[in-house]
Nucleic acid binder design. Structure first.
Lengths: 340, 340
DNA sequence: CTGAAAGCGCTTACAG
DNA sequence: CTGAAAGCGCTTACAG
């Protein structure tokens, strides 16, 4: 396997010159550069990232931390977005999955001594105070994507949930719904996702529009471990909704996948959607259109790009013009809320 | 940032001993090991992968190459599967996207001199002869996942398309369909995906069951670039099908997403599914159930795990008991083929 | 069981 | 514009 030295010998120059020529840094004469490039080509030379990294102190690696799985609609889209801006800049994107608070703990605790990454993008994780302290003290920049709070992150990208919920509740209000509710997902108890913030935003938006406590209900998400399956969680939630005293005529559901399953379960139980209960989701994922689900569209792919742009600037030591970016959702109206 | 040397000083031993103790290699006394572990903890020590890599010659990195996007159902599931087995073994999984033949070319041509990965998993790419030659000569093992041919790869994992198509055609035959066809996807012209193999397998299966040339049709996939959008490709294909002389009463479609879109377009054009045309997809992806699509289920998540297990063994220099694994699909019957 | 030392393949001041 | 040399932080024979 050819090394810098081999290329240097071939081109009749020193390794320093080869290094400079290949990376386009420092002045190297046109002629020398060409000679070197040819020599490099001829032996299929590729820089050893390990050696470069060790010498330069930069790993050219950014880690993207996601909860539970890489292959969810949100996570995979965010990773793709980040990849699109990081790859052309020469960085490897290294996914890291955490499933339990121990996983996260191990990851965060190793951060202070970690020389294996130049930046971190963290998806849908809110940091408790201890982690905030650790993140603040490390030299590696971190960007929170879809985090509830800015705490601990050098920069954040998230969706404006308050405006989103105003859009949703506004639609329900204009359709004449007087009793409305919010349905939280079953959750991974080790992570405080965006659920609480989203239901809080829902309640605030509703009160602003004149709904009072008796007209509002929140179906709280339970620990996912309580259920044998996703389907069981859905049908249990469906039953709770149906049995509810002064049952709402419209529901905002935390995410599309749950809303879609719920719509199916409700209909199976004889509840008509949207006539008896109207439904609004959140995401506009790949199944929402087919399900005829009215929803709040967000764009994790774009969020991944933005987070990557931020981390890129931070890694270059730049000061961000807008470290905390708030994106707006788009209300997409479909059958699950009936005709406008 | 603490280095091995710092830990050694703290524990009062040499760096060699620290290195051995931390990695659990070589004999180190219980007492020494504990002292070292404590010292390491206390300064949040983490090994520098770059330095380890440079010294040991192993990068602890495996690249997974996918076409066009990370966030497709197939690709993201495969990556997740690979991650699950590679991460516990200490390897980073580094996704790499190729969109054009130039991308692939650049990647493959750099392989011979590449010291930046220990193994490669390549998804849905068939190698032409030149690449086969390059791959054969490099020292890094490669696993082909969903490749049409074994050529060039140290090992492969794929689905048995011949059996799959026999399942599908068998169902159509038993349902009494006498004129049947296969619909290819619009394709990325830079990559020869599995389309041709799949339609070939369809034709073989159909002939074996007694269908003759006049009863069979193949709607060939066109260069995706010809269309302004996916929807346009779909509606064009739909029109071709409808206009077909001696139109088939049942179609196998190359993948679910296209089948689902096609079902929608056909119905919109007044063709009843399954009464006028029955449809069978391929994948059983997350939308197939909702669409009521009969389909051939495959499991890219499992394929990713298997490919990772193979590459792991190859990287350890082991000889594979079964280098070429063929998985079976499961026929999942739903409304798009009517009642059995 | 432990240590001294060479070496992995680069980058980067420092000189010239 | 170019080169000699130090050094990045580890691993791994080699000795003892």
């Amino acid at each position: 396997m050819a090394s810098l030295q081999d290329v240097a010998d071939l081109a009749g120059v020193s390794v320093s010159t080869v290094s400079r020529a290949l990376r386009g840094t420092g002045r190297v004469s046109e002629a020398t550069r060409n000679r070197i490039k040819q020599a490099a080509e001829s032996v299929h030379f590729t820089l050893s990232r390990s050696a470069s990294s060790l010498a330069s102190g930069k790993t050219m690696r950014v880690s993207i931390v996601v909860i539970d799985r890489i292959n969810t609609w949100f996570n995979a889209s965010a990773i793709q977005g980040a990849y699109e801006v990081l790859e052309p800049a020469g960085y490897d994107v290294v996914p890291r999955v955490v499933s339990t608070s121990e996983d996260l703990d191990a990851f965060v605790r190793h951060l202070p001594g970690n020389r294996n990454l130049d930046g971190i993008i963290v998806v849908s994780i809110n940091l408790d105070d201890e982690y905030v302290r650790i993140l603040r003290d490390i030299t590696v920049p971190s960007v929170g994507l879809d985090a509830r709070s800015r705490a601990g992150y050098s920069a954040t990208v998230r969706v404006d949930e308050q405006v989103a919920m105003r859009q949703a509740v506004g639609l329900l209000h204009s359709l004449g719904h007087r009793r409305i509710g919010f349905v939280e997902m079953p959750n991974n108890p080790d992570f405080l996702l965006s659920a609480k913030r989203r239901s809080g935003a829902f309640l605030r938006a509703a009160r602003d529009l004149g709904y009072n406590e008796f007209d509002l209900s929140v179906f709280e998400g339970q620990d996912f471990g309580h259920f044998r399956s996703f389907d069981e969680a859905v049908s249990q939630t469906s039953s709770r909704i149906i049995a509810q005293f002064r049952r709402p005529t419209a529901l905002c559901v935390e995410i599309d996948d749950f809303a879609i399953a719920l719509q199916y379960a409700l209909r199976k139980a004889g509840i008509r959607v949207p006539e008896d209960i109207a439904l609004i989701g959140f995401d506009d994922n790949s199944r929402a259109e087919m399900a005829g689900l009215t929803t709040l569209r967000q764009d994790p792919h774009r969020m991944g790009q933005l987070a990557a742009e931020q981390i890129l600037q931070l890694m270059q030591g730049q000061v961000l013009a807008e470290p905390h970016q708030l994106l707006q959702t788009t209300l997409v109206t479909r059958q699950s809320t009936g005709a406008l």
